[in-house]
């Protein structure tokens, strides 16, 4: 029983026929070819598959594709480009927050929602916002630094 769904992916409207047991993660990677979204566990525990649905970070490995009908999905590819990277992408590069980069897309998306809602987060708020994104390389220090830097650049006031 396939069904056609219509949703917005990175600002563009898109129609797609999906099976009801297909996971959003696989549809994004395979059908849409957006491989910035990663598989790290498939059980909701690492955050590598994080995408934004209606601007909120969720896990695409535990989301049925069929349920995003009429919703707005944003992946890492949708928030910045080579010419015009998102301030978070810029800050991650500058502070050394990208080591292997496998956790980076999910991490940046979690941070984006944080800064969109709370332009001037405290260090604790930053840590809590990314608690669902595991990183084995960095020890999180430079990631937190990067989010702070982006917050300043995006106009959040910081003492």
């Amino acid at each position: 029983m396939k069904k056609e769904i219509e949703f917005t992916i990175n600002g563009k409207s898109r129609k797609l026929t999906v099976k009801p047991n297909e996971l959003l993660l696989n549809v994004i990677r395979e059908d849409l070819g957006l491989t910035g979204t990663k598989y790290g566990c498939g059980t909701g525990e690492c955050g590598a598959c994080t995408v934004l649905i209606d601007e909120e970070p969720v896990l695409s490995c535990l989301t049925l594709a069929i349920t995003v009908d009429k919703k707005k999905v944003t992946t890492i590819e949708g928030i910045g480009t080579d010419e015009n990277p998102h301030p978070l992408q810029q800050a991650f590069v500058e502070t050394g927050a990208v080591q292997c980069g496998f956790c980076t897309p999910g991490m940046i998306l979690s941070a984006k929602t944080l800064l969109d809602k709370n332009p001037n987060p405290t260090e604790d708020e930053i840590k809590r916002a990314i608690e669902g994104n595991l990183c084995r390389c960095t020890g999180y220090i430079k990631i937190i630094e990067a989010i702070k830097l982006a917050s300043v650049r995006m106009g959040g006031r910081r003492k």
């Binding site: 910035g36 590069v93 990208v98 980069g101």
Partner: peptide
């Protein structure tokens, strides 16, 4: 000098760089 990693930008942009990113 702390020059940025040569591959940091493409990684932060989510480019298809990892082993499983090809079909």
């Amino acid at each position: 000098k702390s020059v940025p990693k040569v591959d940091a930008f493409p990684l932060a942009l989510g480019k298809p760089l990892f082993a499983d990113d090809i079909e």
